[in-house]
Design a protein around this nucleic acid. Structure first.
Length: 329
DNA sequence: AACATCCGCAACCGCCTAGTG
DNA sequence: GCACTAGGCGGTTGCGGATGT
């Protein structure tokens, strides 16, 4: 060890806590334009006073366009329980079975809903505990597994009494890309039964989660709450993030209209080659290309989106906001 | 209405792992 | 094999809203 781990960033120089809409916009716009090859360098380039880790987390958990928002369905919850039984607290692996869901989200659902649910179930069905319940609630049989006290390789886990799970390692990077990852040909061995992954797949398929291991179901993007809703309702929404309000951001930037906002960002504008008047998702000035030095601080004025690059219409912005409208203050 | 408590979730922290030189 | 870095992951915390008294 010696020196110990160098901090990922200078804590005194970075902002912490909840993200403001303005920061979200910066991050979205930057990632849409430049991608996120280097999270560590991204905050500086994007003009964000945030740690790279924080940016990554924010993007992955809340700003990615392909996120599925909303409550978990009963089927999803049941699947999480099933998967947790075999995978344990491997939230990212579990999340890979749910396109559009994040490991953090699933972890939260587990900790807040499902764990309690199963404890209740257990108490209701006293005596004849299901394996599912016992694997989660019985300290004697599964404590080490659940608490991760004993470090285990993914390739070989002692799940509970006499239950061995053999899981093929994910190919590099697949777990991080939950959308593209597919179900591996895992084999689950049990003292009383041998369950190959096909059975799990069939079970999941019966619940409507996917129909082919290599062809995960496509989750339609939702945009209950889009950018224009946000901008249109700017006057009635007060961000709860510190002293900065959305009004502050808008007033500072003089965004009093869609056009001004579009001009500022250069990202959303009049529809090109579209007969649909409402289809305002194409970049206004996408034809103009400018040289941008990635080492320079990111400037919204420099963003020139390509035809297919930016699609705010499909991004559900500020997901932490109410889905059915903006709270009046 | 005011206060206390509970609950859910976004975000942070620290460790682990893979990649690179 | 070692040192170092960056990304990823899981555990935990703390805030804010919901609910109860």
């Amino acid at each position: 060890m010696g020196k110990g781990r160098a901090p990922c960033c200078d804590k005194s120089q970075v902002k912490r806590g909840p993200w403001s809409p303005a920061e979200d916009l910066k991050l979205i716009a930057f990632v849409q334009k430049f991608g996120h090859e280097n999270w560590r360098a991204l905050p500086k380039q994007a003009g964000l006073q945030r740690c790279g880790k924080s940016c990554r987390l924010r993007w992955i958990n809340y700003l990615r366009p392909d996120l599925k928002r909303g409550n978990f369905t009963v089927e999803e919850e049941e699947t999480i329980i099933k998967l947790h039984k075999t995978l344990g607290n491997k939230w990212s692996k579990i999340a890979s079975y749910f396109p559009g869901r994040t490991d953090n989200e699933i972890k939260n659902v587990w900790n807040t809903h499902l764990k309690k649910k199963l404890v209740v179930k257990k108490s209701e069905s006293s005596g004849d505990e299901s394996k599912l319940e016992s694997s989660i609630t019985s300290p004697s049989s599964s404590e080490s597994f659940l608490s991760n006290e004993v470090p285990m390789k993914d390739s070989e886990k002692q799940v509970s009494n006499n239950e061995l799970v053999i899981i093929n390692e994910d190919p590099k990077g697949s777990s991080s890309n939950s959308l593209s990852s597919s179900i591996e040909s895992n084999t689950i061995l049990n003292s009383s039964q041998i369950v190959d992954n096909n059975n799990l797949e069939q079970e999941l398929a019966s619940l409507g989660f996917y129909d082919d291991p290599n062809n995960l179901i496509e989750i339609p993007w939702e945009s209950d709450y889009d950018l224009w809703n946000f901008i249109d309702n700017i006057g009635t929404y007060q961000s709860n993030v510190g002293e900065e309000t959305v009004q502050d951001v808008v007033e500072a930037k003089n965004w009093s209209s869609h056009d001004e906002f579009e001009n500022e960002f250069g990202v959303v504008g009049e529809t090109k080659e579209s007969n649909n008047k409402d289809d305002e998702v194409l970049p206004k000035n996408y034809e103009v290309e400018q040289e941008i030095d990635p080492h320079e601080a990111f400037d919204f004025n420099d963003i020139i989106m390509q035809d297919s690059e930016l699609d705010f219409g499909n991004i559900q912005l500020w997901p932490s906001l109410p889905q059915n409208g903006i709270p009046k203050v």
